[in-house]
Design a protein around this nucleic acid. Structure first.
Lengths: 72, 72
DNA sequence: ATTTTATGCTAACTATAGTCTGTTGATTTA
DNA sequence: TAAATCAACAGACTATAGTTAGCATAAAAT
């Protein structure tokens, strides 16, 4: 994929995940998603659906809106 | 589907679309999506992907974040 | 009254999201 | 130098998102 919106989203997931000292695998457990899938999202290789967007936001204890911040 | 997050999203799309006096069909042109698909999204029958979320936000001239407001 | 506009709904199809296994390489830890 | 942790990546599979045509209903417009 590599569309800009997916890149923005993926960067935000990675940034917040690392801030919380979580590995991709740990986040995947919390979000009930597969290990490799988190990596694909962070690399903007998949066009994520809304239900999974929410799962990730919940796993990171943030609002969905926070995953669309575009300051960096 | 009918998951809560899809219901919230659909309600917001409909609300803003009507505020702007657009029919589903008119919005579908602007967003480059099919007529019936907009209806399905508003009725929370499909789990929309991020790329299409952005298309709808752009067609409505709003930010993606605005589609996740939960006041009404 | 009938034509037009708007939406709901179904069903079938095709494109792709999402799952899962396994391999590789880098880094860290013992 | 192992052993363990982490992430990138590939490939194959299954589930479902997204497209499209068509029919039904209701309301507004002519």
């Amino acid at each position: 994929m590599k569309q800009e919106i997916l890149v923005l989203f993926g960067k935000n997931v990675r940034k917040i995940r690392i801030e919380q000292n979580l590995s991709q695998e740990q986040l995947s457990y919390k979000a009930d998603l597969h290990r490799t899938y988190i990596g694909m999202i962070e690399r903007a290789e998949k066009n994520i659906t809304l239900v999974n967007i929410e799962k990730i936001a919940n796993a990171l204890n943030i609002k969905i809106q926070d995953l669309f911040n575009d300051n960096l």
